[in-house]
Simulated scan of single mutants.
Amino acid sequence: MNPVTYSPGLHKLVTLEVKKLDTLINSQKFIAFSEDLLLKYTLEKVGISIHDFENGSFTIAICLKESHICIHTWPEFKQLTLDVYLCNYLQDNTLKVKEITADYISYFEAKILKDFEINR
């Protein structure tokens, strides 16, 4: 008898270098892009927390039924950190996590400085 194994999902963490500084200080544009991604990948948002800092940087946590997407921007360093995690006991979302992360990298026209994948 083969026991059924369960892996909650892929957790992807990246640090990106961004040359277009306007994307690091425009939280509303990031939110609009993220809303489009949620539709594209059929993800269900259950909440969002947004904080804009005095220097224009922002921190956003999008809580999903499937888990979360979080970002922290540092325009003074031309960097951001992005955290994408999708879990689901009914399907494997590994490819979806990688595609969402790639879409964000394209949105920011970014260079990857650090790239971590954690299979949870």
Rank of each mutant, 00 (worst) to 15 (best):
M1Y: 13
Y6S: 08
G9V: 10
H11P: 15
T15H: 05
E17S: 06
E17C: 07
E17G: 02
E17N: 07
L21A: 13
D22T: 12
D22S: 14
D22R: 15
D22W: 11
L24Y: 06
I25K: 14
N26V: 13
N26M: 11
S27T: 14
K29Q: 15
F30H: 13
F30C: 06
F33A: 07
S34Q: 08
L37R: 05
L38T: 08
L39H: 10
L39P: 04
K40T: 04
K40F: 08
Y41N: 00
Y41L: 06
T42W: 00
L43C: 03
K45R: 08
K45A: 10
V46W: 00
G47P: 05
S49I: 06
S49R: 09
S49L: 06
S49A: 06
I50W: 05
N55Q: 11
G56S: 14
S57G: 12
F58Y: 07
T59M: 03
I60E: 02
A61H: 10
A61V: 14
A61Y: 04
I62M: 09
C63Y: 13
L64A: 14
K65H: 10
E66L: 00
I69V: 00
C70E: 02
I71T: 05
W74F: 13
E76H: 13
F77E: 09
L82A: 06
V84D: 02
L86A: 04
C87N: 15
N88V: 08
Y89W: 11
L90R: 15
Q91S: 06
D92E: 05
T94E: 09
T94P: 02
V97L: 09
V97W: 01
V97A: 04
V97P: 08
K98W: 02
E99H: 06
I100N: 03
D103E: 10
Y104F: 14
Y107V: 02
E109A: 05
A110M: 01
K111N: 10
L113E: 07
D115Q: 01
D115G: 03
E117W: 13
I118R: 13
N119C: 08
N119P: 03
N119W: 10
